[in-house]
């Protein structure tokens, strides 16, 4: 076994210092060492997007990074994207309004991905949104509610026949 190393992270505005093996993934450090279990681990090889977090402002797969690689970085998880007054951010609120989740397992990844995407791309087209959503998998919803949530958060029209996802 290789020696453990000290990793310093600022997560959701709080400084942390953990002692971990170099092979420990950022997703596992967030969940097991920092007890931030909102970051979900699905496929653990970069395919599903459930573990998406922001590292230094960019949305990335936490399962494709060793924590040691991001020593000194600022990390934002799903626990950190909500306004401090207890309300939901625009995409979170739209997910609720548009029934964008069922079991909820994939939801943190969608929320972090789209919060980051809409921050960087405030005026996307409908096609842009579909492409931006393509990096996250959902096995319940059939995506319609999620796409409508993204449209709503981006200020794009929601097609009338797609309002409640009942058209498929």
């Amino acid at each position: 076994m290789s020696d453990e190393v000290v990793v310093k992270l600022n997560v959701n505005g709080r400084d942390h210092k953990v002692l971990v093996e170099p092979r420990k993934l950022l997703s596992d450090v967030l969940r097991e060492d920092l007890h931030l279990t909102g970051t979900h681990v699905g496929c653990e090889h970069g395919a599903c997007g459930a573990c998406t977090v922001m590292v230094d402002g960019a949305a990335v797969r936490a399962c494709l990074l060793f924590a040691v690689q991001v020593d000194g970085s600022k990390v934002v998880t799903v626990e950190g994207v909500t306004p401090t007054d207890g309300t939901l951010n625009p995409f979170q609120q739209a997910m609720q309004d548009c029934h964008g989740l069922q079991c909820g397992f994939c939801t943190p990844g969608f929320v972090v991905s789209m919060t980051s995407y809409l921050d960087d791309n405030p005026n996307p087209t409908d096609d842009d949104l579909k492409i931006a959503l393509s990096g996250n998998l959902c096995r319940c919803t059939g995506y319609r509610g999620i796409i409508n949530a993204a449209r709503t958060a981006a200020g794009l029209p929601v097609p009338a026949n797609a309002a409640d996802g009942s058209d498929h």
Partner: peptide
């Protein structure tokens, strides 16, 4: 470049 994976992959 946009054909590679997804934007989260290309960020890294």
């Amino acid at each position: 470049l946009p054909h590679i994976g997804h934007f989260q992959i290309r960020n890294r």
